[in-house]
Design a protein around this nucleic acid. Structure first.
Ligand SMILES: [Mn+2]
Ligand SMILES: [Mn+2]
Ligand SMILES: [Mn+2]
Ligand SMILES: [Mn+2]
Lengths: 228, 228
DNA sequence: TGCAGAATTGAGCCGCGTCTAAAAATAACC
DNA sequence: GGTTATTTTTAGACGCGGCTCAATTCTGCA
């Protein structure tokens, strides 16, 4: 019945969808300017594309308020996220590309990955669940595990947790994290917070290190408290 | 001085250039209709693109006669051919993709491969000289070895040689060749030619097999005769 | 509550890469 | 060698995905 089942999405559309997806993952509401900035494109271009995507039932656009993915849109976006993250992991694990370089490469390659190759990569990597930066890899049907992540920056003093995810678009941040051995999986404890906004002091086993605000806002921690 | 050194080429332009390159490799003169057919695009689109490429000094276009790559164009095209063929080899060797599927995948991926990744692949593969179908991989500066190839179809009875190359765009042909163990490197001898155009009978060691005309026109043999 | 500044949208433009239909040049054939 | 068939080019159109600039809407603050 629904005769527009398999729209062929352009690379540009895929980029927009994955960008929105990335923000929604973090629970943020998604505005024109966020997309505009993240994609390096004029705000008016975003608006125009949102209309197009809305007409394809991939996005819901509330003028002047923001956008959100529809069920269809989320499906397509998860697909892209899966491509992107599988490629990132493949590049680090198999090709030997350092983790601060894989994002840009994956960004270019994701649109060119066939379903067949996607399956081959997943196979070789043993059906991985997370990419090199800790981002969840959606499975084929688009489903993802749910996690309760909190910004390192917002944790109260004394909180314990595990590094879950580090924003992957800025190579310098990734190197900054690596210098402090803040990798996904690293256990940490917040020792001290400068109330006037400088750094968080974090303990990693016996070591401790300072993490500046800008970085601490881009590092996500999984805590074991039951914030119901 | 020359301020237009590094034009950024669009994927479409890269496709046109690599297509012309592919024909020139085989010593053919390149016409609008050949490109049109090979790229699945209207002849008028080819003409228009040829003008654009000519204005960028990548192509020389003699109206109504044909086109050829300039030095710049050949550089750029060799770059694409290198990408394409490195990817094909990587996919067969590392990812385990069968040789009749790699062409289409490489065709999509080639435009998204950075110089950095290109180098990584070449490294992993040990600076290879030929792709899975026997096509030569240009080195970074665009240089390629010279070979003296002849169509299997045009060899006289009794000629000995080695399979050098099999056209890679048609998966069925590649499977056809594989069934007969006609891989790059296989030694063969032409036992018999049907003068009325059916098949060539080829000996491979003790075995022999028939190769139909359409296939024999797409299989290239390196012979050891000194055709000076 | 009204207003200034910021965010968003609308209108209109542009280049790319495609198409179709018609004109022009070349090639084939009798 | 002239006529016909084929190939190629020209002309004009279109959709996409960007942009700029102006109009609109929303927000924060006096
Ligand atoms: Mn996929
Ligand atoms: Mn990542
Ligand atoms: Mn290259
Ligand atoms: Mn090949």
């Amino acid at each position: 019945m629904t005769n527009e089942d398999k729209k062929e999405l352009s690379p540009a559309m895929e980029d927009y969808l994955r960008t929105i997806y990335k923000f929604e993952e973090k629970g943020a509401m998604v505005t024109t300017s966020m997309i505009s900035e993240s994609l390096g494109v004029a705000p008016a271009s975003v608006t125009k594309m949102m209309k197009r995507l809305a007409s394809m039932d991939l996005v819901e656009h509330e003028p002047y308020r923001g956008v959100g993915l529809t069920a269809n849109g989320e499906k397509a976006a998860a697909e892209m996220a899966r491509h992107h993250r599988l490629i990132e992991l493949f590049l680090t694990e198999v090709v030997g590309v350092p983790w601060d370089r894989v994002h840009d490469e994956a960004h270019r390659l994701e649109h060119a990955l066939s379903e067949y190759l996607e399956d081959r990569l997943a196979d070789i990597l043993g059906d991985p669940k997370v990419d090199p930066h800790g981002q969840l890899i959606p499975c084929k049907d688009g489903r993802v595990a749910v996690r309760n992540l909190r910004m390192l920056w917002e944790l109260e003093q004394g909180t314990r947790g595990v590094v879950a995810e580090i924003e992957d678009h800025d190579p310098a941040l990734l190197r900054y994290a690596a210098e402090r051995t803040l990798f996904p999986g690293t256990e940490i404890c917040v020792v001290e917070r400068d109330p006037y906004g400088g750094s968080v002091i974090v303990a990693l086993g016996a070591e401790r290190c300072a993490v500046g605000q800008d970085a601490a806002r881009q590092i996500w921690i999984e805590t074991n408290d039951t914030t119901s």
